[in-house]
Each structure stands twice: as C-alpha cells, then as structure tokens.
Amino acid sequence: MSVTSAVSSDYNSGVSNVPIEHQFNPYSDNGGTVLGIAGEDFAILAGDTRHTTGYSINSRYEPKVFSVGDELLITANGFAADGDALVKRFRNQLKWYHFDHKKNLTIKSAARFIQHLLYGKRFFPYYVHTIIAGLDEEGKGAVYSFDPVGSYEREQCRAGGGAASLIMPFLDNQVNFKNQMDPDSNGTAKKELKYLKLDEVISLVRDAFSSATERHINVGDGLEILIVTKDGVRTEYYPLKKD
C-alpha cells in the first residue's frame, strides 16, 4: 500500500503514502437568514422563505420559522435537514412534556431543553443556528439563541443564518442603541435603552431583510414574521425581491 517515488524532489515531497480517504459529506447549506427580537410584551421571530443549495433556488416559499404551541416560536437555520430534525424532535418532546406534566413549557425550560438536544449531538452536530422566541413567566418578550452545539444565552435580539453578519450590527445600533448618544448631552451620555414598540420592530425587521436581500444571494423571495403576544401567535408575510 505504500507509494514510493524514484526521485525525491520539491515537487513530490508532499506526496503522502497514507491511503486517500474519500468521505461522504453529510452536511450542506440551505441558505436563508432568521431574526428574533424581544419587546416589552411581545416577541417576534422572522425568516426569509428562500430555500437554496449552492446557486440554485430550490423553493421560493419554504417556511422555516414555526409556532410549536405554548406560544413558543422556533427556528433552526443552516443545514435544513438538521433544522427540520431538531424542530421535529422538539415538537415531539413538547408533546411528551404535556402528557407527563400537564402544564405548558416555559421558554426558560424550552431553552435549557434545546441545549440538551443540541449538545447530545456534540460530536456530530446539528449544523444550525437555533433561535426561540416567546414570553417569559412575567409576560415579557424573550429571545434565546444557540450555537450548533448548545451554548445559549437570553438576548434582546439576535440574527442568525447566512446574513447574520449583515443584520446583527444594524440590530446592535437600532435595538440596543450601540454607538448612539443622547442628543441633548452633547456627546457625553449614551442614549438610554428603551423597549421598541411592535410596529417599530416590524419596520426594523422589514428593513433588515430587504437590505440583506440586496447584499446576500441566499436571502430573498419572501419574509415571514411570527409575532407572539399575550393574545397568541400571528403571522405576517411580506414579499422580498426574487432576484
């Protein structure tokens, strides 16, 4: 099995005599981007509806943000098969939680549980950026975001997926008022944090997605925004550019 060369030179010094292993790649990237924002008494979770592999648009409408009951929204963006599998497992376990405990799953518990689902595959990870949104025990908007292996954090807002790096700085500035000063302080005091109203958030999200659509090839076609309030979950759809 050894590969030996007659002459040693600069050109064959890199030749290895280890058998070449061709490996099946179990992952792919199905594009898209997602975004969650928590308000004072509401939370939203939004995603574009384009589904891709490489340069091909597989579908212009394939939703990836789901309302799974208990006023919980979930999305797992990245490798779509893993995302679907994760959401499916979560839905199933949520059903069992109801059977076993006869009560709703709080978003705090949902977040910890999703950590277990993700970390359980630490050495063959779900290739997804997971975000959940809902209301916490006090009725305040909550967004939790996860890395592919289950590290998580509660945040005021988070963008995930292909255009996360485009949207997140915009959100830092517009939701958490990063680099904004109080206009009356003459540049000496930071602008005070305050909750945004729902209509402000919706227009932020729409701006974020139409801008991401311009700059990212895997984002576009449609925007689906799921909104949780104390009255339940509702969905809004806005078209995005299809090019």
Binding site: S28, N30, N58, S59, R60, Y61, A81
Partner: peptide
C-alpha cells in the same frame, strides 16, 4: 415535494 440523500426536503410548484 423533494427529498434527497442528505435528508433535505422542500416543496415548490416546479421541482
């Protein structure tokens, strides 16, 4: 609907 070797699925009016 579509399904492939990776388990990726989607639906569209033309596939």
């Amino acid at each position: 609907k579509y399904a492939d070797l990776l388990g990726v699925t989607y639906s569209s009016p033309a596939i």
